[in-house]
């Protein structure tokens, strides 16, 4: 993750530090590198799109454009959540899209020394979405791969 990382050398000798925005989904903790995040939109209610692929969380109005959102819950086969959700506006090669999560937490600075690759027991789909995990003091921060969350890519993968 050196490309996405904001390398700040502190007391660790060689390990780079990465700033991750932590997001919650139920009890799980996920991280998105902040360099990919354009903006965080709080408590939005996306407009559902009938007949859209399941992973599409709906549409939101964002700075004059209509943004397609991806529901992380749907992607991970979790039951949908009622009430407003937070949206991370992410930038990818295909344009902007929103990522619907339960709530956005603080920005954590993690060290690449704590990074471990995806465990081999993960299923193929998740292995593509995740980019390893960071070991925190008392939990794991699962790193998401923003490129893989792009609705276009997901749409193509599904088809």
């Amino acid at each position: 993750m050196s490309t996405a990382a904001m390398a700040v050398s502190r007391k660790e000798k060689t390990a780079a530090l990465v700033e991750m925005c932590s997001v919650r989904l139920g009890s799980a903790l996920f991280g998105v590198p902040i360099t990919h995040i354009l903006e965080i939109v709080g408590s939005a209610r996306p407009q559902p799109v009938p007949l859209a692929p399941v992973f599409v969380g709906g549409l939101v109005h964002y700075r004059g454009d209509v943004l397609t959102t991806v529901s992380l819950r749907q992607l991970l086969d979790m039951p949908p959540k009622d009430g407003p959700q937070d949206i991370l506006v992410l930038e990818s090669s295909g344009g902007c899209f929103g990522l619907l999560v339960d709530s956005v937490g603080e920005v954590l600075t993690v060290s690449s020394a704590d990074h471990e690759p995806n465990p081999s027991i993960l299923d193929g789909r998740r292995r593509a979405l995740f980019a390893g995990a960071y070991k925190l003091k008392d939990s794991l921060l699962v790193m998401l791969n923003p490129e893989q969350l792009d609705p276009m890519r997901l749409g193509a993968a599904q088809a």
Binding site: V49, V56, L59, H61, D65, V66, T68, P151, G155
Partner: peptide, 26 residues
Amino acid sequence: KPLSAVLKDIGLFSGATVLGNADLAL
């Protein structure tokens, strides 16, 4: 407003718009 390719593929919607009451409408 244009729709993203994923939603365009549904075929029923030609775009989206924001209504006066800030609602989105396909």
